[in-house]
Amino acid sequence: MDFFFVEYRDPLFGLIVLTALVFIIASSHYIWRIFASKDQKSKLDRFVKKFEINSTHQQILKNANLSIENLNFLAQIFTKSGEFEKAVGIYLIALQKSNEANQKEFIFFSLAQVYLKAGFLERSVEALLNALKIKARNKESLKLLKIVYLKLKDYDKVLDVLECLFELGENIYAEKALIKALKTQASSKEQEQKVKEILALSKDNEYILRLCFLYYKDKLTQMPKFENVIDLLNECKNPLNLEDEKYHEFFYAKNLSTKSIPIKNHKLKILKILNDNELSANLSFTYVCNNCKNQNPLFFYHCPFCYEFGKCEIYYEVKA
């Protein structure tokens, strides 16, 4: 057994053994890096070939001495103009030309955005998973992946991504409850059971309360805040929740409530005056993201531009 203990032998022998071990480890690491690099390049080539679109313009761009920044800029121009096929082709060329991991991550993310806009959801998922292989703790990639899975109605995977975002410090509780409600609504359960489960999730959650107001208004025991459902109230033909002052003001301004009350909201006051003068006034709505300030014609839980959750604010104006 003494053979294995270097201290009982010549110190020079121990030094030789140590040097040999270091050499073996370094050589093994170098060989592993070579094979890993070849494997990564092989996977990248397979990804590019899977979605590559052959064209004369692409061959010109491949041979051109353009930097990654130039290619990204060109792809963004085509994306903004709606020429998604050309944008995809340029991003694939950029992928082949890029050597740095952070460049590849950015290109995969940009490619996923283009695929999402073009409606190729599965391709978008594949591009995002490649981006996350390079940098797993990228919040932007995870948030976009969540949106794509949501569009695919794969609620289990959305919940998995939310758990990843929770580990990165994101507050996911309200959003997680909404996804569970959407999953329940899309399930094959009996309607009564669906309503029961969704209502159980709705307590103090304005997003689920809006969902319930839209589909299960008669079952609600807690009404959503007036500001969060004013656009849905505008479609109501009968007054409801008149115990709430804001609700009452709204239905009185629409001449759906006969009980006279002072109207504090100046827009509703104008609406009331116009309706009293038989000018058939109504409200028009726009939906603005508080995060990126972009407008959308329809209500959203997740902003279609910056993908943030719960940032939709409803703006309304009186129109005659």
Results as ranks from 00 to 15, higher is better:
8 Y>E: 11
13 F>S: 13
15 L>F: 14
22 V>P: 00
24 I>N: 04
28 S>I: 07
29 H>G: 00
30 Y>P: 00
30 Y>A: 13
34 I>R: 11
40 Q>T: 05
41 K>L: 09
49 K>T: 13
54 N>F: 12
57 H>M: 11
58 Q>K: 05
60 I>N: 08
61 L>E: 09
65 N>Y: 08
72 N>Y: 01
72 N>V: 02
72 N>Q: 12
76 Q>V: 15
76 Q>L: 11
77 I>L: 08
77 I>C: 00
79 T>K: 12
86 K>M: 12
87 A>C: 09
89 G>L: 02
90 I>H: 05
94 A>Q: 03
96 Q>C: 03
110 S>L: 04
112 A>K: 08
117 K>L: 15
117 K>Y: 11
120 F>M: 11
121 L>M: 14
124 S>R: 03
127 A>Q: 08
133 K>N: 14
135 K>I: 02
137 R>N: 15
141 S>D: 12
146 K>D: 05
147 I>H: 07
153 K>W: 03
154 D>L: 07
157 K>C: 02
160 D>C: 01
161 V>I: 15
173 Y>H: 11
178 L>T: 02
179 I>T: 08
186 A>D: 15
191 Q>F: 01
192 E>N: 13
194 K>M: 05
196 K>N: 14
205 N>L: 07
213 F>H: 09
214 L>M: 10
219 K>C: 12
219 K>V: 00
224 P>F: 03
233 L>D: 06
233 L>I: 05
234 N>S: 15
235 E>G: 00
237 K>G: 13
238 N>Q: 13
239 P>R: 12
242 L>H: 09
244 D>G: 04
245 E>F: 14
252 Y>G: 02
252 Y>E: 01
257 S>N: 15
260 S>N: 09
263 I>E: 08
263 I>R: 03
264 K>I: 04
265 N>A: 06
266 H>I: 12
266 H>V: 07
266 H>T: 14
267 K>N: 10
272 K>N: 13
278 E>N: 13
284 S>A: 15
284 S>E: 15
285 F>P: 04
286 T>Y: 03
288 V>T: 14
291 N>S: 14
291 N>C: 05
292 C>G: 06
295 Q>A: 11
296 N>A: 05
301 Y>K: 04
302 H>I: 00
308 E>F: 08
311 K>C: 06
315 Y>K: 12
318 V>R: 10
